[in-house]
């Protein structure tokens, strides 16, 4: 493998220009944050020894109280406890805590033969199962009702794909391993979008909500280069090599839109329109989950049906955003 061969292979594998407007976005953000570097770090104040000792003592007491409270909470059975059905903040912190736990769970299973695969897959399944069980012990607040149902579906799908990966590891089946890992990204990407959106969801003013709708409409309708993706244009047949890319790309796009409408909670006068668009996006999301499963199982008829359902759902989303 000589130098020229490597130059050529690297350039062929990665040749991709920065996304359009990338530098301009950076420039705009830097300008917006002008004078930021001069900001004094929060802990540059001078502390006396006595105040340090006092602070440390207070911190020890606070940590001890928190640990006792956490222990007591952990001892309570979750079944039969009062669901925090009306607590938006409670639901948000539950999702955030589970998402963080999942993010921090080790995962070094990159190849079929990595020694950590069995442990990592089982640990991650356990974390997802705990998240799923905690969702069951909550009744989601109204504003999260649609995304909550999708969250459960993606957690279930991810759990199954981790199981399929574990089966592939046990049976040394490389193709099954590659497939399960690849289509797992649909759920991983979606969960990333949704969990962060739920955790940071906040009420929007009418003008903020209208601006969001305009932005989403521009993404869907104004982007001529997206149209091939948005219609799963390369997924007419099961063997099309670009189809897996289309499904994952669209899943990312739909997940982003779902997250946007959750993060920017609609004011009361837009709640009906908001529900409609969230339901239609959920239909598109369901169709993409089905398309991913069809590809995973090499099922042509299921892919055709999922593609048709996706096109219907996205037409409905487009109409929602026009109204």
């Amino acid at each position: 493998m000589d130098d020229m061969n490597l130059f050529n292979r690297f350039h062929a594998a990665f040749e991709e220009a920065p996304p359009r407007g990338a530098f301009e976005r950076l420039q705009s953000d830097l300008i917006k944050h002008s004078a930021a570097p001069r900001a004094r770090p929060a802990f540059q104040m001078r502390w006396s020894r006595m105040s340090l000792r006092l602070t440390a003592a207070v911190a020890v007491v606070v940590i001890a109280i928190a640990l006792i409270a956490a222990y007591i909470a952990a001892q309570r059975p979750s079944v039969g406890s009062v669901p925090a059905s009306d607590s938006v903040a409670g639901y948000q912190s539950m999702v955030q805590a589970n998402y963080n736990a999942w993010l921090n769970t080790p995962f070094s299973c990159h190849t079929l033969t990595d020694s950590s695969c069995s442990t990592d897959l089982a640990t991650n399944q356990a974390v997802l199962l705990k998240w799923r069980n905690e969702l069951d012990s909550f009744r989601a607040p109204n504003q999260f009702a649609v995304i909550d149902a999708q969250l459960r579906k993606h957690l279930d799908a991810m759990f199954q794909k981790l199981g399929a990966t574990a089966t592939a590891v046990n049976s040394h089946n490389q193709s099954q391993f590659d497939n399960a890992m690849f289509y797992g990204r649909i759920d991983v990407t979606w969960l990333n979008h949704a969990a962060q959106a739920i955790a940071s969801s906040h009420g929007a003013t009418s003008s903020q909500y209208v601006a969001l709708v305009h932005a989403e409409r521009a993404t869907l309708i104004g982007c001529s280069s997206c149209q091939q993706d948005l219609t799963l244009g390369d997924c007419a047949t099961i063997g099309d090599p670009i189809c897996p890319h289309d499904v994952t790309t669209d899943s990312d796009l739909v997940g982003t839109m779902q997250a946007d409408f959750v993060k920017t909670a609609a004011p009361a006068e837009f709640s009906d329109q908001n529900s409609t668009v969230q339901i239609d996006l959920a239909q598109a999301d369901n169709a993409l989950i089905a398309a991913g499963n069809a590809l995973l199982q090499n099922d042509s008829a299921a892919l055709k049906s999922a593609r048709a359902a996706y096109l219907d759902a996205m037409s409905a989303v487009s109409a929602d955003l026009q109204s």
């Binding site: 062929a12 993010l103 193709s175 590659d178």
Partner: peptide, 20 residues
């Protein structure tokens, strides 16, 4: 980040995939 590796998985190879 633990899940980065999952997000970066390339699509499974198919017969129709080009050599490049």
């Amino acid at each position: 980040s633990a899940w980065w590796s999952v997000l970066k998985v390339d699509p499974p190879e198919t017969a129709a995939m080009t050599a490049d």
